[in-house]
């Protein structure tokens, strides 16, 4: 496990708007290990999606990557993805690092068949004969549990159902056997029974192919189900990072605690839910010091003045909170 394939250090992504500079991601560091599912959880606008896209510089205007490094290991050599020339990065995108986005409908081009779109991905990164690529595409569709892949490969996206489309997208993203798959809310638009199929599929693929997955989501249940390690993001920062059991059993950061308490657990008898007071801060003028203090029930004076440092409370468990200032390793 202690074998990272991606090291993100002090990543900052700012959006330059007329209203001001939106600090969407502000000093984020984490590592993704080999063959693990790394969960990135947070609420809308916390910067989780921007973080996952910034790794391969997929940042739309007017966003800019201000600083940071994203070191990716290729054959025991580290390359900084943020400094790589665009044409070399393009070779990595789609072959070594691939994405599954939330909306499968817009991820597929309505003018081409499902099979062709996978073939296209294969040919973009490999020198193979189109006929071979076609049979590989069908093989991939079979692997993502699409029934009758030979027929489905010739269907156009509008002929496929939502769950089927999502699987085609998943197929296109694994066909080149990536080292790292970034799944951004992969099950948000699909039904619970289909979501169960997707979860099963992703874990199978992970074991089969030995790839790492960055799972970006706001769904605590999904994280509990799939992730090995979890990073909790709040207002552009990672406030806590630990393995999944620690996050759910012994969360340290007040935000993580709040997040876990406010999700209804269907297996428990609940009289009341415990919401987090207040609202998500404006990222143009974030609160001084710790960004969570205006909503935090345990805020102290220092929280308002100074941003908390990252404190390693135990092996692999880092929290950014003044409450644990003395208790680091």
């Amino acid at each position: 496990m202690s074998d990272p394939i991606l090291k993100v250090e002090d990543l900052r992504v700012y959006f330059y708007t007329y209203a001001g500079v939106v600090k969407a991601v502000d000093g984020v560091s984490f590592e993704v290990y080999n063959k693990e599912v790394f969960g990135l959880i947070g609420e809308t606008g916390c910067g989780k999606t921007v973080t996952s896209r910034a790794i391969t510089r997929l940042i739309p205007d007017p966003g800019r990557i201000e600083s940071g490094r994203a070191l990716f290991r290729i054959n025991s050599r580290w390359v900084d993805l943020l400094k790589l020339p665009e044409d070399e990065l393009r070779k990595i995108r789609g072959s070594m690092i691939t994405y599954v986005f939330q909306d499968p409908t817009s991820a597929l081009d309505p003018l081409y068949t499902a099979g062709y779109q996978i073939v296209e991905t294969i040919l973009a990164h490999n020198k193979t004969h189109p006929r071979e690529a076609w049979s590989k595409a069908i093989e991939t569709l079979r692997r993502v549990l699409i029934p009758e892949p030979e027929i489905r490969a010739r269907s156009y996206p509008h002929e496929l159902s939502g769950g089927m489309k999502q699987r085609v997208v998943a197929g296109a993203s694994i066909v080149n056997e990536p080292r790292l798959l970034v799944a951004d809310e992969p099950t948000t638009n699909v039904d619970v029974t289909i979501q169960a199929q997707m979860i099963e599929l992703l874990s199978q693929l992970k074991n089969l192919k030995g790839m790492s997955i960055i799972l970006v989501t706001h769904n605590m249940g999904l994280i509990a189900e799939m992730a090995d390690r979890v990073a909790v993001m709040y207002a552009g920062k990672i406030v806590e990072i630990a393995d999944v059991n620690t996050i759910f059993e012994e969360p340290l950061h007040p935000y993580t605690q709040g997040l876990i308490n406010c999700v209804p657990d269907p297996t428990k008898e609940l009289k009341e839910l415990y919401p987090i007071a207040g609202t998500v801060p404006d990222l143009i003028n974030p609160p001084s010091g710790c960004r969570f203090w205006p909503r935090c029930s345990r805020a102290m004076d220092i929280c308002k003045r100074e941003a908390p440092p990252g404190i390693n409370v135990s092996e692999g468990h880092r929290v950014e909170c003044w409450l644990y200032a003395g208790s680091g390793l």
């Binding site: 769904n219 249940g221 999904l222 509990a224 189900e225 876990i260 657990d265």
Partner: peptide, 9 residues
């Protein structure tokens, strides 16, 4: 098949 927000369960 609903995910439960508790990894062990």
């Amino acid at each position: 098949s609903i995910p439960i927000p508790n990894p062990q369960k």
